[in-house]
Amino acid sequence: MNRPRFSIINASFLFLVVSFISITVLGLIHYCTNENRTKIPTFETLETFKYVLPLFQKVDSIPLEFKEGQETIKVYKAYDQYKKCVGAIVCSTSHNGYVGEIDVLIGFDAKGEILNYRVLRHKETIGLGARIVNWFKSKEGGHNIIGVKVNETNLSLIEDGGEIQAVTGATVSARAFLFAVRNAYLVLLKKTDVFGDSGLIDESNSSPEPTSESDSLKVSTLKGGPNE
């Protein structure tokens, strides 16, 4: 096939036409996808709520939002058919992950027991820090937090004076995850009435444990080794 001879005019004209078509196509696609792109993707769906807190009839559609230091914590209160509060679903974030933020959805019943959790978002290393997704659900190995009453258990790593076994080779990720869970519990306890009938509020006010956990977290983070 005969190809046109190269000249500055030829090439300039070609680039001008190709660039014009490119810009038009991009502009069109940008316009068509604009509505979808500006929607904030949400992980907080009824399916994930049911996963972390199976027994409820109704859940708040608009969450209560609290600011705890850097982290924003969202609380969705859940109710049974008699409109009695049966627990809450808490979306908690930790900025202390090895790579970045870790978002966790945790289901608490009205007695302060963790029913289930789901890690919504993380960028931890696959095969190491990413194991937090299921690590704390395992019945073996001293790292289960499902069915645990947070007021009766020190939800910190063994390295930090707590009772939970860290993910092998990923202490920082495990610590960040537990930080998010503890923060979620503290917000429920101090700033909501979810545990109103359980008697937890009085107990917690007399106990300095959560504060000391936070302090031990800061100290141990500073001491942290090369592990993730």
Partner: peptide
């Protein structure tokens, strides 16, 4: 559009 593209570019 290959027929419009000079070899050099």
């Amino acid at each position: 559009i290959k027929g419009l593209i000079p070899t050099k570019v």
